[in-house]
């Protein structure tokens, strides 16, 4: 059965921008989760295509807003996400840009939740304890896991 809910991580292999991949891999190891889980490396606008089959999408991404690394931010408003996200982008194009484009083209899922994980872009404060984050995100997606 194809789930109408997805949890999609985005990022890159560089430094802590890899955090979403780790979260998705951790979620994949939970056999009770029946939700579609995926990860894309710098998908640019292709992310909009990837989200098309789903009514509800939880996006997981690294963000920089100068709070403590490991802080989990939650957004349902892409404009609030855009305002609070320092450009952590590839080729001048970040997740916020993709979502704003999706809004203009009417290609966003009916429900979109962004889980932004605060990272230290310089990676100087040690590894983020991402297992706690996985638990928090899991609690958020559990109502869709039916």
């Amino acid at each position: 059965m194809v789930s109408k809910t997805a949890v999609i991580g985005v990022g890159s292999p560089f430094g802590e921008d890899y955090i979403a991949y780790r979260v998705i891999e951790c979620l994949k190891r939970d056999p009770t989760l029946k939700i579609h889980l995926d990860y894309y490396d710098r998908p640019y606008w292709h992310l909009l295509e990837c989200m098309k089959p789903f009514d509800t999408v939880h996006l997981v991404d690294a963000i920089v807003s100068h709070q403590a690394p490991g802080t989990l931010h939650r957004y349902e408003d892409i404009h609030a996400f855009q305002v609070n996200q320092q450009s952590l982008s590839s080729h001048g194009w970040g997740l916020a840009d993709t979502l704003l484009l999706g809004e203009v083209l009417d290609q966003l899922p009916s429900k979109l939740i962004i889980h932004g994980i605060e990272i230290d872009p310089h990676g100087s404060q040690g590894e983020i304890a991402y297992l706690d984050l996985v638990s928090q995100i899991k609690r958020d997606i559990l109502p869709s896991n039916r």
């Binding site: 292709h46 484009l101 203009v104």
Partner: peptide, 25 residues
């Protein structure tokens, strides 16, 4: 100033570009 602004007036152009890009992927 950006493709986001362009998409408001030319959505089909941008969608075509996205589609061709995806075929490449």
């Amino acid at each position: 100033p950006s493709v986001i602004a362009m998409a408001k007036d030319h959505p089909e152009v941008v969608k075509r570009g996205m589609h061709l890009h995806r075929l490449g992927l």
